[in-house]
Simulated scan of single mutants.
Amino acid sequence: MQNKLKKTYKFAIKTSLYITIFLTLFMSVFLYLSNAVNWEYIIAFFIICYITCFLITQYRVERFIYKRVKKIYDDLTLLESTSLINKPITTDMATLTQEIDKFARDKKLEIETLKVREEYRKEFLGNVSHELKTPLFTVQGYILTLLDGAMKDKKIREKYLNRANKGVERLIYIVKDLDMITKLEVGDLSLKVEEFDIIELVKSVFDLLEMKAAKKKITLTFDMDYQNPINVMADKERIQQVLTNLVVNSIKYGREKGTTEVSIENLIKNKVIVRVTDNGEGIEKMHIPRLFERFYRVDKSGSRKEGGSGLGLAIVKHIIEAHEEKIYIESEPAVGSEFSFTLEKAK
Protein backbone atom coordinates (compact mmCIF):
# COMPACT_ATOMS: atom_id res chain seq x y z
CA MET A 1 0.00 0.00 0.00
CA GLN A 2 1.26 3.53 -0.76
CA ASN A 3 2.18 5.49 2.37
CA LYS A 4 2.25 8.86 0.57
CA LEU A 5 0.09 11.49 2.25
CA LYS A 6 -2.30 13.41 0.09
CA LYS A 7 -2.68 16.67 2.03
CA THR A 8 -5.87 18.68 2.33
CA TYR A 9 -5.74 22.30 3.53
CA LYS A 10 -9.45 23.08 3.78
CA PHE A 11 -9.68 22.60 7.54
CA ALA A 12 -6.51 24.61 8.30
CA ILE A 13 -7.51 27.46 5.98
CA LYS A 14 -10.96 27.89 7.48
CA THR A 15 -9.85 27.40 11.09
CA SER A 16 -6.95 29.85 10.73
CA LEU A 17 -9.24 32.40 9.13
CA TYR A 18 -11.77 32.17 11.96
CA ILE A 19 -9.06 32.50 14.66
CA THR A 20 -7.33 35.37 12.85
CA ILE A 21 -10.56 37.33 12.35
CA PHE A 22 -11.49 36.86 16.00
CA LEU A 23 -8.05 37.93 17.31
CA THR A 24 -7.84 40.86 14.88
CA LEU A 25 -11.27 42.13 15.95
CA PHE A 26 -10.33 41.67 19.61
CA MET A 27 -7.07 43.57 19.11
CA SER A 28 -8.85 46.32 17.10
CA VAL A 29 -11.35 46.87 19.91
CA PHE A 30 -8.53 46.96 22.46
CA LEU A 31 -6.56 49.51 20.41
CA TYR A 32 -9.72 51.57 19.84
CA LEU A 33 -10.42 51.75 23.56
CA SER A 34 -6.77 52.67 24.11
CA ASN A 35 -6.97 55.40 21.45
CA ALA A 36 -4.04 53.79 19.65
CA VAL A 37 -5.64 52.53 16.44
CA ASN A 38 -3.05 51.93 13.68
CA TRP A 39 -4.33 50.20 10.57
CA GLU A 40 -0.84 49.23 9.41
CA TYR A 41 -0.27 47.32 12.66
CA ILE A 42 -3.70 45.69 12.39
CA ILE A 43 -3.11 44.49 8.80
CA ALA A 44 0.38 43.22 9.69
CA PHE A 45 -1.03 41.44 12.72
CA PHE A 46 -3.77 39.87 10.56
CA ILE A 47 -1.26 38.50 8.05
CA ILE A 48 1.23 37.22 10.65
CA CYS A 49 -1.53 35.71 12.78
CA TYR A 50 -3.14 33.98 9.82
CA ILE A 51 0.14 32.44 8.57
CA THR A 52 1.08 31.32 12.09
CA CYS A 53 -2.35 29.78 12.79
CA PHE A 54 -2.39 28.06 9.41
CA LEU A 55 1.03 26.44 9.89
CA ILE A 56 0.31 25.30 13.44
CA THR A 57 -3.19 24.02 12.64
CA GLN A 58 -2.08 22.18 9.50
CA TYR A 59 0.84 20.56 11.32
CA ARG A 60 -1.27 19.43 14.28
CA VAL A 61 -4.13 18.19 12.09
CA GLU A 62 -1.76 16.10 10.00
CA ARG A 63 -0.04 14.68 13.07
CA PHE A 64 -3.29 13.99 14.88
CA ILE A 65 -5.54 12.82 12.03
CA TYR A 66 -2.97 11.12 9.80
CA LYS A 67 -2.13 8.47 12.41
CA ARG A 68 -5.80 7.57 12.84
CA VAL A 69 -6.65 7.72 9.16
CA LYS A 70 -3.61 5.60 8.27
CA LYS A 71 -4.81 2.95 10.70
CA ILE A 72 -8.21 2.91 8.90
CA TYR A 73 -6.47 2.49 5.54
CA ASP A 74 -4.25 -0.27 6.95
CA ASP A 75 -7.26 -2.10 8.36
CA LEU A 76 -9.09 -1.87 5.02
CA THR A 77 -5.96 -3.05 3.22
CA LEU A 78 -6.18 -6.27 5.20
CA LEU A 79 -9.59 -6.75 3.52
CA GLU A 80 -7.91 -6.34 0.11
CA SER A 81 -9.74 -3.24 -1.04
CA THR A 82 -7.91 -2.56 -4.31
CA SER A 83 -9.60 0.82 -4.70
CA LEU A 84 -7.99 1.99 -1.45
CA ILE A 85 -4.65 0.22 -1.87
CA ASN A 86 -3.92 2.07 -5.11
CA LYS A 87 -4.65 5.55 -3.71
CA PRO A 88 -2.53 7.83 -1.49
CA ILE A 89 -3.72 8.38 2.04
CA THR A 90 -5.80 11.52 2.40
CA THR A 91 -6.74 13.42 5.54
CA ASP A 92 -9.87 14.64 3.79
CA MET A 93 -12.67 13.05 5.80
CA ALA A 94 -15.27 13.47 3.02
CA THR A 95 -13.06 11.64 0.51
CA LEU A 96 -12.32 8.89 3.02
CA THR A 97 -16.02 8.51 3.85
CA GLN A 98 -16.91 8.19 0.16
CA GLU A 99 -14.21 5.58 -0.37
CA ILE A 100 -15.32 3.55 2.65
CA ASP A 101 -18.98 3.74 1.56
CA LYS A 102 -18.01 2.52 -1.92
CA PHE A 103 -15.92 -0.25 -0.38
CA ALA A 104 -18.86 -1.31 1.82
CA ARG A 105 -21.28 -1.35 -1.17
CA ASP A 106 -18.86 -3.40 -3.25
CA LYS A 107 -18.37 -5.91 -0.45
CA LYS A 108 -22.11 -6.17 0.13
CA LEU A 109 -22.67 -6.89 -3.56
CA GLU A 110 -19.84 -9.42 -3.52
CA ILE A 111 -21.32 -11.19 -0.49
CA GLU A 112 -24.79 -11.31 -2.07
CA THR A 113 -23.30 -12.73 -5.29
CA LEU A 114 -21.40 -15.37 -3.32
CA LYS A 115 -24.58 -16.34 -1.47
CA VAL A 116 -26.46 -16.79 -4.76
CA ARG A 117 -23.59 -18.84 -6.18
CA GLU A 118 -23.50 -20.94 -3.03
CA GLU A 119 -27.21 -21.70 -3.43
CA TYR A 120 -26.65 -22.62 -7.09
CA ARG A 121 -23.70 -24.82 -6.09
CA LYS A 122 -25.75 -26.69 -3.49
CA GLU A 123 -28.61 -27.16 -5.94
CA PHE A 124 -26.21 -28.27 -8.67
CA LEU A 125 -24.56 -30.87 -6.41
CA GLY A 126 -28.00 -32.13 -5.37
CA ASN A 127 -29.07 -32.45 -9.01
CA VAL A 128 -25.83 -34.22 -10.00
CA SER A 129 -26.24 -36.59 -7.07
CA HIS A 130 -29.82 -37.38 -8.10
CA GLU A 131 -28.98 -37.89 -11.77
CA LEU A 132 -26.09 -40.25 -10.99
CA LYS A 133 -27.53 -42.21 -8.09
CA THR A 134 -30.74 -43.21 -9.92
CA PRO A 135 -29.01 -45.31 -12.63
CA LEU A 136 -26.33 -46.44 -10.17
CA PHE A 137 -28.88 -47.84 -7.70
CA THR A 138 -30.81 -49.38 -10.61
CA VAL A 139 -27.71 -51.20 -11.85
CA GLN A 140 -26.76 -52.22 -8.33
CA GLY A 141 -30.27 -53.55 -7.67
CA TYR A 142 -30.30 -55.78 -10.76
CA ILE A 143 -26.79 -57.09 -10.10
CA LEU A 144 -27.57 -57.88 -6.45
CA THR A 145 -30.77 -59.66 -7.51
CA LEU A 146 -28.77 -61.79 -9.94
CA LEU A 147 -26.14 -62.57 -7.30
CA ASP A 148 -28.89 -63.61 -4.86
CA GLY A 149 -29.86 -66.49 -7.14
CA ALA A 150 -31.81 -65.02 -10.05
CA MET A 151 -28.76 -65.65 -12.27
CA LYS A 152 -29.70 -69.32 -12.52
CA ASP A 153 -32.84 -68.46 -14.48
CA LYS A 154 -31.70 -67.71 -18.04
CA LYS A 155 -34.70 -65.49 -18.94
CA ILE A 156 -34.43 -63.39 -15.76
CA ARG A 157 -30.64 -63.20 -16.13
CA GLU A 158 -30.87 -61.85 -19.68
CA LYS A 159 -33.68 -59.43 -18.76
CA TYR A 160 -31.87 -58.00 -15.74
CA LEU A 161 -28.54 -57.71 -17.53
CA ASN A 162 -30.22 -55.75 -20.32
CA ARG A 163 -31.81 -53.42 -17.77
CA ALA A 164 -28.48 -53.00 -15.97
CA ASN A 165 -26.86 -52.23 -19.30
CA LYS A 166 -29.42 -49.47 -19.92
CA GLY A 167 -28.52 -47.97 -16.53
CA VAL A 168 -24.82 -48.03 -17.43
CA GLU A 169 -25.59 -46.42 -20.82
CA ARG A 170 -27.42 -43.63 -19.04
CA LEU A 171 -24.41 -43.05 -16.78
CA ILE A 172 -22.12 -42.93 -19.81
CA TYR A 173 -24.52 -40.51 -21.50
CA ILE A 174 -24.44 -38.15 -18.50
CA VAL A 175 -20.63 -38.33 -18.18
CA LYS A 176 -20.15 -37.67 -21.91
CA ASP A 177 -22.45 -34.64 -21.76
CA LEU A 178 -20.62 -33.28 -18.71
CA ASP A 179 -17.30 -33.82 -20.46
CA MET A 180 -18.56 -31.97 -23.53
CA ILE A 181 -19.80 -28.99 -21.49
CA THR A 182 -16.45 -28.80 -19.67
CA LYS A 183 -14.56 -28.78 -22.96
CA LEU A 184 -16.88 -26.13 -24.39
CA GLU A 185 -16.44 -23.93 -21.31
CA VAL A 186 -12.63 -24.07 -21.36
CA GLY A 187 -12.52 -23.76 -25.16
CA ASP A 188 -10.95 -27.19 -25.54
CA LEU A 189 -13.56 -28.50 -28.01
CA SER A 190 -12.60 -27.51 -31.54
CA LEU A 191 -15.36 -26.74 -34.03
CA LYS A 192 -15.21 -28.05 -37.59
CA VAL A 193 -16.79 -25.12 -39.40
CA GLU A 194 -18.11 -25.93 -42.86
CA GLU A 195 -20.79 -24.83 -45.29
CA PHE A 196 -24.04 -26.82 -45.27
CA ASP A 197 -27.75 -26.49 -45.97
CA ILE A 198 -29.63 -25.88 -42.72
CA ILE A 199 -32.91 -26.93 -44.33
CA GLU A 200 -31.54 -30.41 -45.11
CA LEU A 201 -30.12 -30.68 -41.61
CA VAL A 202 -33.51 -29.91 -40.05
CA LYS A 203 -35.13 -32.52 -42.31
CA SER A 204 -32.62 -35.13 -41.15
CA VAL A 205 -33.40 -34.27 -37.50
CA PHE A 206 -37.13 -34.63 -38.26
CA ASP A 207 -36.50 -38.06 -39.81
CA LEU A 208 -34.46 -39.10 -36.78
CA LEU A 209 -37.16 -38.08 -34.28
CA GLU A 210 -40.23 -39.00 -36.31
CA MET A 211 -40.92 -42.16 -34.29
CA LYS A 212 -40.52 -40.34 -30.98
CA ALA A 213 -42.92 -37.60 -32.10
CA ALA A 214 -45.44 -40.16 -33.40
CA LYS A 215 -45.83 -41.63 -29.90
CA LYS A 216 -47.41 -38.34 -28.76
CA LYS A 217 -48.96 -37.68 -32.17
CA ILE A 218 -46.89 -34.52 -32.52
CA THR A 219 -46.35 -33.15 -36.03
CA LEU A 220 -42.83 -32.05 -36.98
CA THR A 221 -43.05 -29.41 -39.69
CA PHE A 222 -41.58 -26.28 -41.28
CA ASP A 223 -43.42 -22.98 -41.15
CA MET A 224 -43.40 -22.92 -44.97
CA ASP A 225 -42.24 -24.86 -48.00
CA TYR A 226 -38.55 -23.97 -48.51
CA GLN A 227 -37.79 -24.40 -52.21
CA ASN A 228 -34.20 -23.14 -52.12
CA PRO A 229 -31.37 -24.21 -49.80
CA ILE A 230 -30.17 -21.87 -47.03
CA ASN A 231 -26.46 -22.40 -46.56
CA VAL A 232 -24.76 -21.50 -43.28
CA MET A 233 -21.22 -21.66 -41.88
CA ALA A 234 -21.00 -23.72 -38.70
CA ASP A 235 -20.04 -27.10 -37.23
CA LYS A 236 -22.65 -29.32 -38.83
CA GLU A 237 -22.46 -32.08 -36.24
CA ARG A 238 -22.78 -29.66 -33.31
CA ILE A 239 -25.67 -27.74 -34.87
CA GLN A 240 -27.41 -31.06 -35.49
CA GLN A 241 -26.98 -31.76 -31.79
CA VAL A 242 -28.49 -28.35 -30.98
CA LEU A 243 -31.51 -28.96 -33.23
CA THR A 244 -31.95 -32.49 -31.89
CA ASN A 245 -31.95 -31.29 -28.27
CA LEU A 246 -34.42 -28.49 -28.98
CA VAL A 247 -36.80 -30.70 -30.98
CA VAL A 248 -36.59 -33.48 -28.38
CA ASN A 249 -37.49 -30.93 -25.68
CA SER A 250 -40.45 -29.70 -27.73
CA ILE A 251 -41.67 -33.29 -28.06
CA LYS A 252 -41.01 -34.10 -24.42
CA TYR A 253 -42.99 -31.14 -23.10
CA GLY A 254 -45.30 -30.75 -26.08
CA ARG A 255 -49.04 -31.12 -26.12
CA GLU A 256 -50.63 -34.40 -27.25
CA LYS A 257 -51.46 -34.04 -30.97
CA GLY A 258 -49.49 -30.81 -30.95
CA THR A 259 -47.00 -29.31 -33.38
CA THR A 260 -43.28 -28.59 -33.42
CA GLU A 261 -42.47 -26.01 -36.08
CA VAL A 262 -39.07 -24.90 -37.38
CA SER A 263 -38.54 -21.69 -39.30
CA ILE A 264 -35.42 -20.10 -40.79
CA GLU A 265 -35.41 -16.36 -41.40
CA ASN A 266 -32.91 -13.79 -42.62
CA LEU A 267 -31.93 -11.66 -39.64
CA ILE A 268 -29.39 -9.25 -41.13
CA LYS A 269 -27.19 -9.34 -44.22
CA ASN A 270 -24.90 -12.14 -43.01
CA LYS A 271 -27.07 -13.83 -40.35
CA VAL A 272 -30.02 -16.19 -40.22
CA ILE A 273 -32.15 -17.07 -37.20
CA VAL A 274 -33.47 -20.59 -36.64
CA ARG A 275 -36.66 -20.86 -34.57
CA VAL A 276 -38.02 -24.02 -32.94
CA THR A 277 -41.60 -23.39 -31.78
CA ASP A 278 -44.07 -25.67 -30.01
CA ASN A 279 -47.58 -25.32 -28.58
CA GLY A 280 -46.80 -27.28 -25.42
CA GLU A 281 -47.08 -26.51 -21.74
CA GLY A 282 -44.77 -23.48 -21.80
CA ILE A 283 -42.42 -22.21 -19.09
CA GLU A 284 -43.00 -19.79 -16.23
CA LYS A 285 -40.97 -16.55 -16.41
CA MET A 286 -39.27 -17.29 -13.09
CA HIS A 287 -37.56 -20.35 -14.61
CA ILE A 288 -36.31 -18.79 -17.85
CA PRO A 289 -33.12 -17.10 -16.48
CA ARG A 290 -31.89 -20.48 -15.14
CA LEU A 291 -33.13 -22.68 -17.95
CA PHE A 292 -29.67 -23.21 -19.45
CA GLU A 293 -28.05 -24.31 -16.19
CA ARG A 294 -26.75 -27.84 -15.86
CA PHE A 295 -29.38 -30.25 -14.51
CA TYR A 296 -31.85 -27.43 -13.88
CA ARG A 297 -35.41 -28.76 -14.00
CA VAL A 298 -38.56 -26.71 -14.36
CA ASP A 299 -40.66 -29.59 -13.05
CA LYS A 300 -38.72 -30.99 -10.11
CA SER A 301 -40.89 -34.08 -9.82
CA GLY A 302 -42.21 -35.20 -13.17
CA SER A 303 -39.67 -34.15 -15.76
CA ARG A 304 -37.21 -36.88 -14.86
CA LYS A 305 -39.69 -39.47 -16.05
CA GLU A 306 -39.02 -38.21 -19.55
CA GLY A 307 -35.39 -39.26 -19.35
CA GLY A 308 -32.41 -37.34 -20.69
CA SER A 309 -29.29 -36.24 -18.87
CA GLY A 310 -30.67 -32.86 -17.78
CA LEU A 311 -27.78 -31.26 -19.68
CA GLY A 312 -29.40 -30.78 -23.09
CA LEU A 313 -30.12 -27.05 -22.90
CA ALA A 314 -26.80 -26.33 -21.19
CA ILE A 315 -25.03 -28.05 -24.10
CA VAL A 316 -27.16 -26.13 -26.61
CA LYS A 317 -26.17 -22.81 -25.02
CA HIS A 318 -22.46 -23.64 -24.95
CA ILE A 319 -22.41 -24.88 -28.56
CA ILE A 320 -24.12 -21.73 -29.81
CA GLU A 321 -21.80 -19.51 -27.76
CA ALA A 322 -18.79 -21.47 -29.04
CA HIS A 323 -19.92 -20.33 -32.53
CA GLU A 324 -20.01 -16.76 -31.11
CA GLU A 325 -23.76 -16.66 -31.77
CA LYS A 326 -26.79 -15.92 -29.59
CA ILE A 327 -29.65 -18.09 -28.32
CA TYR A 328 -33.03 -16.74 -27.21
CA ILE A 329 -36.16 -18.09 -25.57
CA GLU A 330 -39.74 -16.88 -25.43
CA SER A 331 -42.36 -18.84 -23.55
CA GLU A 332 -45.81 -18.49 -22.09
CA PRO A 333 -47.45 -21.09 -19.84
CA ALA A 334 -50.21 -23.13 -21.54
CA VAL A 335 -49.33 -21.49 -24.88
CA GLY A 336 -45.92 -22.85 -25.84
CA SER A 337 -42.25 -22.05 -26.17
CA GLU A 338 -39.91 -20.77 -28.86
CA PHE A 339 -36.16 -21.34 -28.82
CA SER A 340 -34.19 -19.46 -31.45
CA PHE A 341 -30.51 -19.10 -32.31
CA THR A 342 -28.47 -17.23 -34.88
CA LEU A 343 -26.01 -18.64 -37.43
CA GLU A 344 -23.66 -17.07 -39.92
CA LYS A 345 -24.93 -17.24 -43.48
CA ALA A 346 -22.55 -18.70 -46.07
CA LYS A 347 -21.25 -16.19 -48.62
Rank of each mutant, 00 (worst) to 15 (best):
S309Q: 15
I72Y: 01
V232Y: 06
H287M: 05
R157I: 04
R294F: 14
H287W: 09
K192N: 07
I315M: 15
L132C: 15
E110V: 02
I283E: 14
A334P: 04
E265F: 08
K217V: 02
E324P: 13
I56R: 03
E194K: 11
S263D: 10
L313C: 14
K269L: 04
D106A: 12
E62S: 05
E344S: 09
L189E: 09
K152Q: 01
T182N: 14
E344W: 09
I48Q: 06
V242H: 06
I199Y: 10
I319H: 12
I181Y: 14
L84Y: 00
R163D: 01
L147A: 07
H318N: 11
T244P: 04
D153Y: 15
K10S: 05
Q240L: 00
L144C: 05
T277G: 13
I283G: 12
L23K: 05
G312F: 07
I72K: 13
N231P: 14
V116W: 11
L208G: 06
F46T: 03
K6L: 00
G308D: 05
Q240P: 05
N249P: 08
I143D: 02
T259K: 04
Q241F: 03
I320N: 11
Y296F: 14
M286N: 03
L209N: 11
K269F: 14
K155F: 13
K67N: 08
L5Y: 11
Y41K: 00
Q227C: 07
Y50A: 02
L23D: 02
K122C: 05
K87C: 12
L146Q: 07
L291H: 00
L189Y: 05
R163F: 01
E284P: 07
A150I: 12
S331E: 09
L146P: 12
L55F: 12
L246V: 10
E62K: 02
L243G: 04
C53S: 15
D188K: 04
V139S: 10
Q58K: 15
I315P: 07
A334T: 08
K87Y: 02
R297N: 08
V202G: 14
I65V: 06
A94E: 09
F11I: 07
D148W: 15
I319N: 12
K71S: 04
H318E: 11
E306T: 03
G126E: 06
K14M: 05
